[in-house]
Amino acid sequence: MKILMVDKNKCTGCHQCELWCGTEITSVSKELTRAIHEQPQPVPRVYVEGKPFALQCRHCEDAPCIEACPNGTMRRDPETGLVYVNEPTCIACWMCVMACPFGIINPSASMKVAIKCDRCRNMGYPICAEVCPTQAITLEERKDYRTKAF
């Protein structure tokens, strides 16, 4: 499967990915100048933090969030291997938030669901990789160690 890789030498911390992720994925208007006035306010699923570095869900092979979820809301798409939140059944208990080793699941009090990157699974191409001006975020094939015999 393909995952998002981030090159820390190329990431300038410009937050373009955050802005576009929030606008394109969560907002109703899909337009930045309007999106910032929306209530509940749109939120990004990628976080530019630290050094700087853009971090989003890693879609772990052994995903602690799936294991922690008490009603199967956190799921893995059997076809793509991507981990996603089935929003209609999310009860906002935040067990997944507590389990995520990367701290990238947002316990959204206003939306009452756990919000995290689904690697734009319903879109053609991940928006953060598309808009990154330095191409620090790229979509690449996952390395071999993950191949698991089924």
Partner: peptide, 29 residues
């Protein structure tokens, strides 16, 4: 944040299982 914690996690790589650690390193770092 995770990035700032990464040196500490790297230093303790032996405490993580193969999958866990690679999962963490898989961020492209």
């Amino acid at each position: 944040n995770f990035m700032d914690l990464l040196p500490l996690i790297r230093r303790n790589a032996d405490r993580f299982t193969e999958t866990e650690f690679k999962e963490i390193m898989d961020t492209g770092l």
